[in-house]
Amino acid sequence: MSATQILFWILSVVALFSAIMVLLSKNPVHSVLWLIAVFFSISGHYILLNAQFLAIVNMIVYAGAIMVLFLFVVMLMNLNKETEPQKNLWLKLAGVVSGGCLLMILVSLIRQASEVTNKQVLLKDGNIGLIKNLGKALFSDYVVPFEISSVLFLSAMIGAVVIGKKN
């Protein structure tokens, strides 16, 4: 087993464990911190796949900006475990069973699918994830969606201000 494979397994275990802890934590602040751990392990997966630009963007945008926003809102509301409402046990059990059934069905489909058998993912090699190549594609073929996304950001900013304004 090579070093990249060992790293893959470590990162996968960290990601799944942290994702489960997001659900199991009673305190919302702990949930946010576990979700940051998930995002960092997914960034590690991107580095392993040699998608360096996406790894850095994932760290800056998700683990940096979005999760700090979440943490800010959680601390603004002063939520703690006494005030958190709980669903009753049967609804929780039904949710877990339905999610598990979906996972089981999808995994069994993937095991039989002929399109993905004997296909290998190129790890730690290939240059399509580098900033140079992604930037060339982004600013030549995909420049119109890129500019439209700036308009989307502007409308989201105005929308957030309008919604959050006290009236």
Binding site: L16, I20, V96, G99, G100, L102, V107
Partner: peptide, 19 residues
């Protein structure tokens, strides 16, 4: 798929809007 289904279970079982 496992991460996605954990997310689905979280949406179905929690009542806190932030979670």
């Amino acid at each position: 798929l496992a991460l996605f289904c954990i997310g689905i279970v979280g949406v179905l079982t929690r009542r806190n809007a932030i979670i």
